[in-house]
Amino acid sequence: MMPKTRDPDTVLEGVQRSMRVAWSREEDRLTQHLVFLATVASASPYIGLFGTVWGIMGSFQALSLTQQATLATVAPWIAEALIATAMGLFAAIPAVIFYNRLSNSSSRLLGKYEDFAEEFHAILHRNLQGRDGKPSAS
Rank of each mutant, 00 (worst) to 15 (best):
M2Y: 07
P3T: 14
P3D: 14
K4A: 12
T5I: 02
T5V: 06
R6I: 02
D7R: 02
P8K: 00
D9Q: 13
D9M: 13
T10Q: 12
T10V: 15
L12S: 09
L12T: 11
E13Y: 03
V15K: 00
V15F: 14
V15E: 08
S18N: 10
S18G: 13
V21S: 05
V21P: 04
V21G: 01
V21E: 14
A22N: 06
A22T: 08
W23H: 14
S24R: 11
E26H: 12
E26A: 14
E27Y: 06
E27F: 06
D28F: 12
R29M: 04
R29T: 02
T31L: 04
T31G: 08
H33P: 03
L34A: 07
V35G: 15
V35S: 15
F36K: 01
F36I: 12
L37I: 08
T39G: 15
A41I: 03
A43Q: 08
P45A: 00
I47W: 09
G51Q: 09
V53S: 09
G55A: 10
I56G: 11
M57K: 00
G58S: 09
S59L: 06
F60H: 12
Q61K: 01
A62H: 03
A62I: 04
Q67W: 04
A69R: 02
A69K: 04
A69Y: 11
L71N: 13
L71S: 14
A72S: 13
T73A: 11
V74S: 11
P76L: 05
I78D: 06
I78H: 02
A79I: 11
A81L: 14
L82E: 04
L82V: 11
I83A: 07
A84Q: 07
A86D: 04
A86P: 08
M87K: 01
G88W: 11
G88V: 06
L89V: 14
L89A: 06
I93P: 13
I93G: 10
P94Y: 05
A95T: 05
A95K: 01
I97A: 10
F98V: 14
Y99N: 09
N100A: 05
N100Y: 08
R101L: 10
L102G: 08
N104D: 05
N104F: 09
S105W: 08
S105M: 04
S106H: 09
S107N: 11
S107H: 12
L109T: 12
L109Y: 13
L109P: 00
L110H: 01
G111R: 00
Y113G: 01
E114Y: 11
E114V: 00
F116V: 02
F120I: 02
H121D: 04
H121S: 05
A122T: 13
A122H: 10
H125L: 04
R126I: 06
R126Q: 07
N127C: 04
Q129C: 01
G130R: 02
G130F: 07
R131P: 00
D132S: 03
G133I: 10
G133A: 07
K134A: 09
S136T: 09
S136E: 15
A137K: 02
